[in-house]
Write a protein that binds this DNA or RNA. Structure first.
Lengths: 206, 206
DNA sequence: CTAAGAATGGACCATGAAGTCCAATCAGGA
DNA sequence: TCCTGATTGGACTTCATGGTCCATTCTTAG
């Protein structure tokens, strides 16, 4: 799929197409993103789209998913590689919210793809599941660090806690979107992160 | 919009169209649902679709959203009207999971519409926000009952707790979908419902 | 019974979007 | 320089889909 002869110019063009498509999909969904609008936004021609993505729109969307997944993890660096203290979790949380804030809309590039294309494209589903899995692995590793240092009860299931945090992110975004406000996301995140406090500092009410 | 002369037969046909469209949207998304597939599934003709929904597909989708929203709340009866005790919350949780289980896919008819059509159709967005709001009101009323009976700390914010529970439902479904398993939804729900225990009975670990 | 209006059937149109094709450039190595 | 292959431009085709229209068949109130 990627075994293609590409010069520097070619790679740049290909990347430009992926990023522009990603933006359009986030803004208007897969269905609202057409090859023509992508072409216009990238100043390319139809043949280029198929030159770099022989599989057509489906392949392009898959590449976007892979790219967005990588971006999502990159945006959480370096915090997500630490997560060994409450401070690092807090910093991670801030970085994540900032990332979504920077997108301009309360939506997850990966999560929204997951709901849009779930049953449609099994291959895309695989790419998405992979991103989610990698993400979850990073979080559960962090939870384990917290257990090792005694900040979190050793009997807790790190996989479960990591999953709950991920659901908080996704669910928070779903609810933040129509309300056009960060508060559902932040409330969900804080609530999911609560078990990571050894000492409950107090409530972060309203 | 609904000021239309309808006989019993007409109402039945109209309803049949709404329900079939709802199923198709849940299965394949708005984009994957075409007037032709709806027509085929309902044994109707093109003219009937436009007869009952003069606004075309957009209006049909809106009606589906309204219907699904009502169904969603109906599926939580009678538990959602109680929620004055931990037992009723538990029963509510079970009914909700059963509802989604009955749908055959881990997706929320309302939540998935929310992510799909957010920026596309403001009117649809309104319908969705209304459903979500009504739902949240029911939950926060329940939380208040728990506060009144002393089961929940009076200083907690019922609106916030209700929102966190909703995010758990939505996020749980997002993550359950690719995994094809109820456990992310259940983990998220249990985690969000945890503050409603007066007596922590113990952990529900793995 | 009978007209008025609801309900239905289905051909037809317009449009937009995916995908194809070929010719024309551009870039870099021999 | 020249030639091969990457890159690009854009017209063209095909097809699905939303939407229009009108004729026909049911229903029902008077």
């Amino acid at each position: 799929m990627d075994d293609m002869k590409l010069t520097a110019r070619g790679r740049a063009t290909r990347q430009r197409i992926i990023e522009a498509t990603g933006e359009q999909i986030l803004a208007s969904g897969i269905g609202g993103t057409t090859l023509d609008t992508v072409r216009a936004a990238t100043l390319t021609s139809k043949s280029q789209l198929f030159h770099y993505f022989p599989g057509g729109k489906a392949e392009l969307v898959r590449e976007v998913a892979a790219w967005e997944g990588a971006q999502l993890l990159a945006a959480q660096q370096p915090h997500v590689d630490d997560l060994g203290s409450w401070e690092s979790w807090s910093a991670w949380r801030a970085a994540l919210v900032d990332y979504y804030l920077g997108l301009g809309r309360w939506a997850c590039p990966i999560g929204s793809l997951a709901t849009q294309a779930a049953a449609t494209d099994p291959e895309l589903e695989r790419v998405i599941a992979e991103s989610m899995g990698a993400w979850r692995d990073l979080l559960s590793a962090g939870v384990r660090k917290m257990q090792a240092s005694g900040d979190v009860d050793a009997s807790a299931d790190p996989e479960r806690i990591a999953m709950v945090i991920l659901t908080a992110v996704q669910g928070g975004l779903v609810m933040s979107q129509p309300l056009r406000s960060a508060w559902p996301l932040e409330a969900a995140l804080d609530s999911a992160l609560d078990p990571l406090h050894r000492v409950r500092v107090g409530s972060e009410g309203a």
